Amino acid sequence: MSSSNMSSPKPVAPVTGLELPICVTCGVQYDAPRSDCPVCLDERQYVAWAGQQWTSLAELRASGRSGRLREEGPGVIGVGVDPSVAVGQRALLIRSPSGNVLWDCVGYLDDDLAAEIEELGGISAIAVSHPHFYGVMTEWGRAFGAPVYIHAADRDWVGRPDPTIEYWDGDIQLIAPGMTLINAGTHFDGGTVLHWADDPEGRGALFSGDIFMVVMDRRWVSFMYSIPNFIPERPSTIRRALELVEPFDFARIYGAFWGRVVAADGAAALRRSADRYLRFALDDEA
């Protein structure tokens, strides 16, 4: 990674896919018009009750939407859309001396938002947790000249393939100093979390999207195969995820939505949350 935080702002590349179709329900952009959205046809998501609907970046811009930036934690800036698009998640700009990393993505980008982020040091790499949060990730990767890291197990869900997308295999992948992707495998086979070892507090942070979902009681997380359809995750999958994350220390867990952050004791919160989940999931087997 380059030391983009220390450099002067530079122009970002223009958006080239203004008219490409974006699913209204999930916010994923595709490379050509189509009649259906595979992400929404999957049992983890849903087709809107009124049927499949499409929009585009051009339409979203014309609707009056704008980017929203807000601090979510030490060295972490939330990146969202107002009014929200599709699922309503916010991405997170992790401000590292070795180069900013964008964690997860949204279904929107405009020139003003890109310029604001460039003022903050730009983006050196993008990593996305799972298909529901792909949004317009190809546009983001092209605009900032940044690689977009996607686990290879979820390759078939990518709606707009592009050379900016880098598929990685295996359990872990270092993408920058102190930045490690972990294939937790919950929610999707390629479901990924990001560990930041060098956060400003010096205690470590885990960025989980809804692979580990920070719940309303922000001392806890949960594990779902499908969130909107209330399908629980498999116990064996959760156990594997815990084994992979166990070696990493972290105090904070950043979830998928505004304010969904476990602010302290994150590693212990993950473990006790898994213990509680498994206790209920396996109760009939005891």
Rank of each mutant, 00 (worst) to 15 (best):
D249A: 15
Y225V: 01
F248R: 06
D199G: 13
G255H: 05
T180L: 10
A263R: 15
E233R: 04
A264M: 04
G185Q: 04
F250I: 09
I227Q: 10
Q173R: 15
I238T: 10
H195E: 02
T237V: 15
I172W: 07
A256H: 11
A176N: 11
W220S: 11
G191C: 01
A264W: 03
S226L: 05
S222D: 15
L194W: 07
V262A: 00
N229M: 13
F248D: 02
G185A: 07
S208G: 09
A184F: 02
D171R: 03
I231G: 06
L242E: 05
E201G: 02
L181H: 03
M224A: 14
R203I: 04
L242I: 01
N183W: 10
I211C: 09
I231P: 05
V261Q: 07
L206F: 06
A263D: 13
D265L: 00
M179C: 02
G190Q: 06
P177V: 02
V245L: 15
I231C: 03
D199R: 10
W196P: 06
G266M: 09
A184L: 01
G202R: 00
G202Y: 00
Y225A: 06
D198A: 13
T192C: 09
P200H: 11
N229G: 06
P228C: 09
H195V: 04
Q173M: 12
S222N: 14
H187E: 13
V215M: 09
V221N: 11
R219D: 14
V221T: 15
R219W: 08
A267H: 15
E246F: 01
F212L: 12
G259D: 09
W196D: 07
H187K: 15
S226C: 09
F212N: 08
R240Q: 12
D199M: 11
A256V: 13
D171T: 12
G209T: 06
R252D: 02
G185W: 03
R203H: 14
Y225I: 04
V262I: 14
M213F: 14
L206V: 08
V215L: 10
V262D: 05
F207I: 10
P200A: 13
I227M: 02
E201V: 00
F207V: 01
E233K: 01
I227Y: 14
E243G: 11
G191D: 05
L174R: 15
M216H: 10
T192H: 08
A197E: 15
I175C: 09
D217F: 07
G185N: 03
Q173Y: 05
M216T: 01
E243C: 10
P235Q: 11
S222M: 02
R240N: 12
F250T: 07
D198K: 12
I253H: 00
I211D: 03
E246T: 03
V221H: 09
H187W: 03
S208I: 05
G209N: 01
W220P: 06
I175D: 02
G209F: 06
I172A: 02
A256I: 12
A251E: 14
L244V: 10
D217C: 06
P247H: 12
L194E: 02
V261T: 14
A264L: 00
F230D: 09
L181P: 11
I175K: 00
